[in-house]
Nucleic acid binder design. Sequence first.
DNA 1: GCAGCAGTGCAATGTTATAACATTGCGATT
DNA 2: AATCGCAATGTTATAACATTGCACTGCTGC
Lengths: 157, 157
Amino acid sequence: MNTAAPSPDAVETGFLDQAEASCRSRGASLTPIRRLVLALLLRHPRGLKAYDLLERIKADKPGASPPTVYRALDFLIEQGLAHKVGRMNLFVACSQHCHQAQMPGLFLVCPRCNGVTELQDDAVMGALAASLAAAGHQLESPEVEIGAVCPACRAAP
Amino acid sequence: MNTAAPSPDAVETGFLDQAEASCRSRGASLTPIRRLVLALLLRHPRGLKAYDLLERIKADKPGASPPTVYRALDFLIEQGLAHKVGRMNLFVACSQHCHQAQMPGLFLVCPRCNGVTELQDDAVMGALAASLAAAGHQLESPEVEIGAVCPACRAAP
DNA sequence: GCAGCAGTGCAATGTTATAACATTGCGATT
DNA sequence: AATCGCAATGTTATAACATTGCACTGCTGC
Ligand SMILES: [Zn+2]
Ligand SMILES: [Zn+2]
Ligand SMILES: [Zn+2]
Ligand SMILES: [Zn+2]
């Protein structure tokens, strides 16, 4: 019994089960297709394009077509389990905090390697929300996209 | 001689001339096509889609094709005269501050009316940059996109 | 003259996303 | 059991967005 280091697979399965429970608690259901898409996103932390996703889905579901993947993605995004990075038409699994906290998350998109980092900083988000409110706006989207060079790319120019 | 209220046309022309000068000072040239695209963006503060822009350009330049508009847009964006809102594939003229100040600007995109507001708040941007730096990242993009309900849409639900 | 280069015209293609309609599966109602 | 209602999925086609590649023009410096 290895309490020390559960395998990556087990971690993923655990996460998926957790997501499934979370969906059920909201009256939604994480069906096999949706679960598969989420699993693929989890395995690719840098994000995936819709059509890459489609190719991979086809391995399991040969009949899959664009709507298959877009519908799954819409669902996952609605449920706060995934995000879209508008800037690069990239989809990423939520790194978990931002749909639990009510606060929106910061999305750091590296222009060099296209890596996406989800960052939580309530102080900054608070200041941001206050500034918007002062201008008459109301923060709404759970996703704030920011272009920022990631640590790895900063180190290796 | 009306020193009181210059016509909107005159304002636009003035702005375009200024942009042209600014390009020249950098060794670039705001050609007729580019100037036309910028003028169209200025006349549509809510932003325009590339193909809408294309239709309008065709009024003047019947031979225009997608590359015509994308090339002009790339140029304007490089020169800091326009921005792309990745979220909605929308292009907007820069409301002038953000390429003059070195600081990036905040882009408030209203999910209800699709309106785009460019906001400058150095305090917030400073806090943001500091927070990113603490996480090892370096703010780079001049465009930070934020979903936020605009004042008009807040008033009229 | 004539290379070299920025800008443009044009056709084809690639990529991303949605519309529209048919079908399946499953629990609730009769 | 038969029917209905509904969510999810399958299927086909198309809309919407963006890029590539090549040819041609009109300059500027040699
Ligand atoms: Zn998230
Ligand atoms: Zn990077
Ligand atoms: Zn700007
Ligand atoms: Zn609005």
